[in-house]
Simulated scan of single mutants.
Amino acid sequence: MKEDLLNKNNGDMHASSSTDYERMNEFLIQETGNSMDVFSNRYQITKRESEIFLMVAIYGFSNHEIAERCRISEKTVKIHLANIMNKAGIKSMRKLLSLLFNHVLYFQDANTLAEKK
């Protein structure tokens, strides 16, 4: 399944079915695990906002691609992303991505240290 999703990210997927979208969401949730849950809880990000944010962060999807896959308007995608930035107190997508990556790295380091104890 992971290879299928990566191939679709490389431009093979122009039209999306709900099954593909659901499989991608499951994959994103599995891959980010507790790290994204902690990030979302910390900044009070909704499940839908998290899904959209991960599509940007992991796959680099454009607003248009996200809108097609989620079957929502591009304006709705922009609103979700703006809400996330407001909740995190950040005004740029680059800084928001940096915040997420730093959080994930910190979370992984903390878990590694806890496992060693």
Rank of each mutant, 00 (worst) to 15 (best):
8 K>R: 13
19 T>P: 00
95 K>S: 12
82 A>D: 05
22 E>G: 01
78 K>I: 01
19 T>E: 02
41 N>T: 04
93 M>I: 02
32 T>V: 04
90 I>Q: 01
38 V>K: 15
94 R>P: 02
24 M>V: 08
24 M>G: 08
60 G>H: 04
21 Y>H: 00
41 N>P: 01
58 I>N: 14
51 E>L: 07
44 Q>Y: 12
42 R>Q: 14
71 R>N: 08
33 G>V: 04
75 K>G: 01
96 L>C: 00
3 E>M: 07
56 V>G: 15
10 N>V: 07
14 H>S: 12
74 E>L: 12
112 T>S: 04
26 E>G: 13
15 A>W: 03
56 V>R: 15
15 A>G: 07
27 F>W: 08
64 H>G: 09
81 L>P: 06
9 N>S: 15
104 V>E: 11
32 T>L: 05
14 H>M: 13
75 K>L: 02
11 G>D: 07
67 A>S: 13
58 I>C: 10
106 Y>D: 05
43 Y>F: 06
109 D>E: 13
10 N>L: 13
30 Q>V: 05
117 K>C: 07
53 F>D: 03
7 N>P: 07
43 Y>R: 12
116 K>L: 07
38 V>C: 11
31 E>G: 04
64 H>K: 14
64 H>W: 09
55 M>D: 15
54 L>T: 10
43 Y>M: 06
23 R>M: 15
95 K>L: 11
72 I>D: 03
7 N>D: 14
92 S>P: 10
